[in-house]
Structures are given as C-alpha cells and as structure tokens.
C-alpha cells in the first residue's frame, strides 16, 4: 500500500515511572507519525496492548497528562511542550460524564471549555449527536443511557474539547461482537475526519485492536527486569492488514493476531 509517514504527532521518550518505589514503567519510547495515504484523509489509530497489571493504565495517565513521569517526557509535537491534562481527549473505561448535566449539557460544557460560544457549542453538540445517532437522547440524563450510548456520548464530549489526539481506555471491554464492530467503525470514522486525528487505544483485546489499528505496541517486561516497556511493535500497513475491507476474514489478519497473541503470552 502506498503510504507516507510525515511529522511526529505524539512521542514518549525514555519515560519511566515508579510508584511507591516500585518501577512500573521503564524507558518507554513511542512515536506516532502522521500517516498519509494519497487522495484520502487518514488519521492514525494505534493500539497499546499488554496483559492486566503490566502498567497500561499508568502509561495511559502519562499520555493523557494526568500524571508526570519520573524521567523522560510525553510530547505533542503541535504543543511543543510536555503534555498537560486537557491537551488530549481521554475516554476512560467507565465512560465518565457529569451526571448532573443532560447529554446535551455535557457536550455544551465541553464545547465551552474548548473556547466556543454557548450557541456554537450547542450547534456542534447537536450535529455530533446526530452523527452518532443520539439526537433523540440530547435531553436525557446520563444515568438513563445504555452502555453503548454512554460510550458514544463520552467520546463526543472529548471530541468537542480536544483537538486531534484521543486516548481510549479499554473501549471494547465487556462488549458483544456486534458492539465491538460498531466501536471499531466509530474509531475509524473519527480517525478519518482529519489527517492529524490520532486515536490511541489501550486494550488487551488483541483481535479488535488488530482490526482497527494501523500500528500496535506491546507492553511487557524484558528478561525479568522490573518495570514494563515496549517489547514489540507491529506495522499493520506493512502487513497489509490496516485499511483492508472485511479485514477479519483475511489470512494476513489471522496470521497477525496469532503472532501478536504468541508474543503477548510470552510477556
């Protein structure tokens, strides 16, 4: 496939973190580059994989600017400084929303935080809800939403407030296969809205990640050393898996999932 990699959009350089004196992350290095496909708007979707308890959530917090590493730094090239909370959109695993605001109220407050006027924020919020097939739930309270609806509202809220980078923590967790496909389609749609859109998916669902991402990173430990680091990466464009229609039925996809699973099991 004819693709070109341009500027670095997100980078983590030599990121290390200890909690209570215990090393959790050790010299993590990551880079997301602007992936360009001629004639198409193509954002980036990267999967961060790793077994439970390896330190994915801590890395997620560092990438979101919610924590500061002990050493190294996470940088958004556009901001040209270490990432801070609010620089990137974050959709946490339980899809948090303000329970005291309606769906529309949740989105309007996010739009206002992004500097829009109330009228602009409301117009953009309603347009986004319509695109996510949630226009009829604009005046609902969050507690009345189904899990899938809540996830989409949480994504919409972050999309309204953030610029191009969106972090998603375990977006496939607890979903049935149809719902997983719907979330994959939503991620692809969000990514393809702007060339610079970058979605980083933290998950342990290898199959879903392989179906939606263009790159995969695997967190693990090396030779029993304390602290997790990136132990393997896969370029899914190179493997002919990324952007392939009906990807799950292709042999390349099945081979890739088997390979990632084998590496995952080795830790």
């Amino acid at each position: 496939m004819n693709v070109e990699y341009r500027d670095v959009l997100v980078s983590a350089k030599d990121v290390s973190l200890s909690l209570g004196g215990v090393p959790v992350l050790r010299e993590v290095n990551l880079e997301v580059r602007d992936l360009v496909r001629p004639g198409r708007v193509t954002g980036q979707v990267v999967g961060l994989l790793g077994p439970s308890g390896i330190g994915k959530t801590q890395l997620f917090r560092l990438l979101a600017g919610l924590s500061t590493p002990d050493r190294g730094q996470v940088t958004l090239t556009k901001a040209a400084r270490p990432v801070r909370a609010g620089d990137v959109g974050v959709v946490a695993q339980d899809f948090p929303l303000f329970e005291h605001r309606t769906v529309l109220g949740n989105l309007v407050v996010a739009g206002r935080q992004a500097g829009l006027s109330t009228a602009e924020a409301k117009a953009r919020a309603l347009a986004l809800l319509a695109r996510l097939s949630l226009g009829h739930r604009a005046n609902a309270w969050p507690k009345a939403l189904s899990g899938g609806q809540r996830q989409r509202v949480a994504i919409a809220q972050q999309v309204l407030c953030s610029e191009h980078v969106l972090l998603m923590d375990e977006p496939f967790s607890g979903l049935d296969p149809n719902a997983v496909d719907e979330v994959c389609a939503l991620i692809t749609e969000l990514a393809s809205q702007d060339e610079l859109n970058t979605i980083i998916v933290v998950t342990h669902d290898l199959a879903a990640a392989a179906a939606v991402c263009d790159h995969l990173w695997l967190l693990g430990t090396v030779d029993g050393q304390p602290g997790a680091t990136v132990v393997a990466t896969w370029d899914l464009v190179e493997r002919g898996v990324a952007f392939a229609p009906d990807v799950r039925s292709t042999p390349q996809y099945r081979d890739l999932v088997a390979e990632v699973r084998a590496r995952f099991m080795r830790g």
């Binding site: 979101a64 919610l66 909370a85 948090p96 303000f98 005291h100 407050v109 935080q113």
Partner: peptide, 21 residues
Amino acid sequence: DHARTLRMREWRVVWEVVVLG
C-alpha cells in the same frame, strides 16, 4: 481526572465535581 481532561482549572473542577456532582 475527567473534569481535568476537559481543560477545567482546579476551582472549576471543584465546582463541577464536588459541589454540583
């Protein structure tokens, strides 16, 4: 954290999460 990811400053976080929430 959710409020902070929406670029809220700490006093706004207190208003939204602690007082209203």
